[in-house]
Nucleic acid binder design. Structure first.
Lengths: 182, 182, 182, 182
DNA sequence: ATGTAACCGAGACGGTACGTCGGGTCTTCAA
DNA sequence: TTGAAGACCCGACGTACCGTCTCGGTTACAT
């Protein structure tokens, strides 16, 4: 979805399908073994690609992970009411691969501003922009709602390892009220 | 605060002050350099202790970090109203050392159930128990409020690197309403 | 045979049998696992004794090993001819426990003069003295013969891991001729 | 001289000079501080190379030492008489670096068959082959002579820490007679 | 056709941290 | 004083992973 695909001038063109294969491998492996437990060598191997190739397209493991995650999330659904995109977000976080990617990335973000920036631009902003455009909400409010939903669910997961429907519901309710009540 | 204390009998007693010195060193270093940037060798060195001594008392870097964090947090204040402990919690999360410890630990928690368990027992449970005893609230509700506050703030931090007063306030409000409104 | 048994003045007397038990444990373990593969903790454990006790009686692992070895070798037989003590020596070296003790000790000797001295005094000198007294040979000659027999056989063992009768015979012959032919 | 050379195809080629630099560092350090007193970290550092690089080329400290020793020994001189290679061998053993390498390796050999095998193939066999080819001697006899010379001198060194000319001469005499007298 | 420039696979390399192991010392309590 | 128990210091071990680098060889597109 963006291993910066723009490669205008000469030279051998990039092999098609490599980007997808690598993201796919990363997603699977991280879902299976967690973020830290997944090696770039491993990813490259499963994707049938050399490690160099991965590093040519992505700056680091974190950036590959962000890209994988963005690809995995896709766009929020174009629903009629405000609740549906928030519910969709919560559902996404409950997916094991999304969750483990997020948890790993939050860890990295603490260490590295460029990861934070990328995370904002590639993950949160699309969501926010969607709600702003669709429902005319204020961007800061939606950002906060995003952080509340993702953060709370992630942290719950980090604490207990699982997440009940009731909890997810409570949090989405909360976030919805947050956006409304301003 | 608990690198385990009750030891049977016999043998050279543990050197007094080692636990405190190591926690102190860990706290400082993690505040300065972040969780991942802090080595056990470094901690041991600053604490004036051999690395093996650290590993004798704590199973791993994560467990030392949890212990350090628990020690750092202390008990929530015995306030009269329900708001104060939640505000206190938010304030704690905004402390650089607490925050960096938490961020690091949330990352590890994804990988390791024993870290999750320890995190629940040493960090969240004391808070919850306090609110339950003091105000007669339901434990699951308080747990959730804890996860919302800590998770949301942490995630906001992970996304932006900073945290405004307004945001912190919004989140504490939310959590308070959550506990009430059930 | 000499964990320096002289303990004149007051205090609790040494427990009888400890010396023998430790030597026994050391011998067995080194025969089974080699010198380097044998830990002092292991020895103490098998001897049913605390590590401290071992270190109170012997200066170091090497010195315990030398003592064990001396005990194990005993005195050369009071034979009538000169050949028999040399043959006896060769036979001793072929014993697994003796061999592994020797190999380990030779390694340590390279690093530590006190080990060398002890080795001379406790292992080689008794042998030499015996041949000097019994057959009126010159001490330096016998010392050399000792070094040739033990050294050659040990080195053969180090190279091949085993030792045939013919080789052993050839070496003893050689050494005998050496002592004679001067 | 052989941290293995023939590599298949592809990949970044090994940096030239690394092998020599590491062997050189190992030789110097072991001559200065003895086998056991020499760390792989130290060797790597002095060679200006990462520790991982050393471990990539040599299986262990022992194998590096064998390689260093083989490199150091070189080939026996192409003399006209049988005495000269044996004298050469004795002279080599008296070199501090050779001696300390050998002593260390003999110790390891007791623990590890792969070290024994390597020692035979890289150290003893070249010597033996030379004498067999040059003088038509039987390989087992020369092997034995090798073990007698090296073993006896090493053991003498282990016992006394030094080695006089007379002793060295006596041993080479012995070994020469051994090869002849069969 | 030929040059150029980017691609890819393979794998060496530097660097840093990890957690473990073993020798030897020290400290306390009990005998 | 001895012994048991076990904490402690020190220093080395070998492994793992990240991200960089250097090859040989390949593949379009522009000249």
């Amino acid at each position: 979805m963006s291993d910066n695909s723009a490669r205008p001038r000469g030279g051998r063109p990039r092999r098609a399908g490599v980007g997808a294969a690598v993201r796919q491998a990363a997603e699977e492996l991280i879902a299976e073994r967690g973020y830290a437990g997944t090696t770039l060598d491993l990813i490259a191997q499963r994707a049938g690609v050399a490690k160099t190739t991965v590093y040519r397209r992505w700056r680091s493991k974190s950036h590959l992970a962000i890209d994988t995650l963005a690809d995995l999330l896709g766009d929020p659904p174009a629903g009629i009411d405000l609740l549906s995109p928030i519910t969709w977000l919560a559902a996404q976080v409950r997916e094991p691969s999304v969750r483990r990617l997020l948890v790993g990335l939050v860890g990295e973000a603490g260490q590295d501003e460029s990861v934070r920036a990328e995370l904002r631009a590639r993950i949160r902003e699309p969501f926010t922009r969607h709600l702003v455009d669709e429902f005319g909400l204020s961007a800061p409010d939606v950002d906060l709602a995003f952080d509340v939903v993702v953060g709370a669910l992630l942290h719950r997961l980090a604490m207990t390892g699982e997440l009940t429907d009731t909890d997810a519901l409570a949090v989405t309710d909360l976030a919805t009220r947050l956006v409304f009540g301003r």
